[in-house]
């Protein structure tokens, strides 16, 4: 059965919230393992891996270095070089926080890599804010890939005019103006035309709207979403009720 994009969003979001609220590393590691398994099963693991690595590698390294070496609150010292002290508490803190963050990042990325953006847009395009929010999301995702080819075209045009990108910050800063001004100008002007086009096609006017694309939303999934949201709220409430439990 195909999941409604909002159902999978509720699942991913609730999982991230509950993992953060629970703050127990066995749960975090389990979530990581499950998310990794799902990404392999869903055939997105290969596309996801670079994105995950770009985000998590510096984050985890930064946490380990920061708290592994400097944790003034730590008492059980394992090693010491000058001002740097490796403490059990520091490593524990770094590990817990890293696993927790990795879990949240993985489930959210798994969601964005597996959903169909058009389905999400259609699901959000009911009315009012949703339609406008859906527009911003979808339009950004459409413009992004086009921008790199447009930047490439501008760079070629400028090189044909004599632009030589010199190494170093000054050279780069000079190249910024050559490339960013035509890019921004054309984007802003195009946006003006697009605004007129959208308004003429009734975008922005109030009143009921319909959807050409059909996204099935069986009642069972609506119930699942409600339950997932309640679970997330309950997890937050439980954590706020007992702020330090499990630590």
């Amino acid at each position: 059965m195909r999941l409604h994009p909002l159902t999978s969003l509720a699942a991913a979001g609730s999982t991230a919230v509950i993992t953060t609220a629970a703050a127990s590393w066995p749960l975090s590691v389990t979530v990581i393992a499950v998310a990794a398994g799902l990404s392999v099963a869903g055939g997105v693991a290969r596309r996801m891996l670079p994105a995950v690595a770009v985000i998590l590698v510096p984050l985890v390294l930064s946490l380990l270095a920061m708290h592994g070496l400097f944790f003034p609150e730590g008492t059980t010292v394992l090693a010491q070089w000058g001002p740097a002290r490796v403490t059990v508490e520091g490593l524990h803190f770094a590990f817990e926080r890293a696993s927790q963050l990795s879990a949240a990042v993985l489930v959210l990325l798994l969601w964005s890599f597996t959903i169909s953006v058009p389905d999400l847009v259609a699901a959000l395009s009911t009315r009012g804010v949703h339609a406008r929010f859906a527009f911003v999301v979808a339009s950004t995702l459409t413009l992004l890939p086009a921008i790199s080819s447009r930047l490439g075209r501008i760079r070629q045009a400028q090189e044909a005019r004599g632009l030589v990108i010199r190494p170093g910050i000054v050279g780069r800063a000079g190249a910024f103006r050559w490339q960013a001004v035509p890019l921004v100008l054309s984007l802003v002007e195009e946006a003006g035309t697009r605004a007129a086009a959208l308004q003429a096609r009734g975008f922005g006017s109030s009143g009921p709207r319909t959807s050409y694309r059909e996204v099935p939303d069986p009642p069972a999934q609506r119930w699942v979403r409600v339950v997932l949201l309640l679970a997330a709220v309950a997890a937050i409430a439980a954590r706020l009720w007992q702020p330090t439990a499990g630590a």
Binding site: S139, T142, E190, R194, A197
Partner: peptide, 8 residues
């Protein structure tokens, strides 16, 4: 520029 950019 006339295309909405939000339809698949």
């Amino acid at each position: 520029a006339a295309v909405s950019t939000v339809r698949a």
